[in-house]
Amino acid sequence: MTTATIDTQLEAPAKGDATKGGATAPPSPIATTVRYVLLIVFAVIVLVPLYVMIVTSFKPAGEISTSRAWNLPMHWSWDGWSKAWDALAAPLVRSLAIASVAAVVSSILGSMNGFVFSKWRFPGANIVFTFFLFGMFLPYPAIMIPLQQLVSQDLGLGQGVVTLMLVHTVFGIPICTLIFRNYYATAVPNEILEAARVDGAGMWKTYTSIVLPVSIPGFVVTLIWQFTSAWNDFLFALFLSQPSNGPVTYALQQLSGGQNPDYASSMAGALIASAPTLVIYIVLGRYFISGMMSGSVK
């Protein structure tokens, strides 16, 4: 059961459990119909903004504010897409760099911390861990002023990609530590660690030869989670970068901001900027949800 804590716990119990016991009457056809009608209505509502984005992104300028704003385009146009691509191509690369570095480094630190906090505790480790956890709930606007001073002036990093890499890495440490700590608590049995200790293995040997090899599921979760949060961030980007050296969210905000935004290119831009995280979600949804659930602390 090494994947116990990584699995989403969302899967329904196996068929045998669900159907056992004669007391469960099969749901009436009316109940089933009502259930599906509701499920479909809710699904349609949730998909409305996506429909709006796709439809509007293909509309030529004149069609957007007409009385047919909800309809499919009369003339399909790629203008919005090409304009959005021109504005977002370079920031997309910067976002990729920022999110990748932040994901990898915080995951590595999180794994080491999680191991220590679950299996190799020092006196006061639990209290230190609680202080780490507060970082997950820290309202970032509340530390933005000294943060600007710290990274731009004290550390001399200025604004832009490197600064954002550092900041996302640091603020990703709490959640990555939490995910690995909870994962190792069940995935690494104490008996194995005891045996290694008897064999004279030290902390580092134990970590690299016993803990690290079973860590892949944990890494998948933290990498996805960290990549997605760094990719989707706007607050840090606004305070710690410029449109010329910032990530894609900043560029998208520039493209779509203002009183009279060009809706076609804005919506195309929103889809372009969301594509990587949406692909991750569709392909690796299970792990994505697992990372999300670990945000509930326990």
């Binding site: 989707n232 706007f234 935004p261 929103a270 889809l271 900027a273 969301s274 995280t277 979600y281």
Partner: peptide, 10 residues
Amino acid sequence: AVSFIAAAVA
């Protein structure tokens, strides 16, 4: 999976 900034466009 979508950022607030992208969602805000729609």
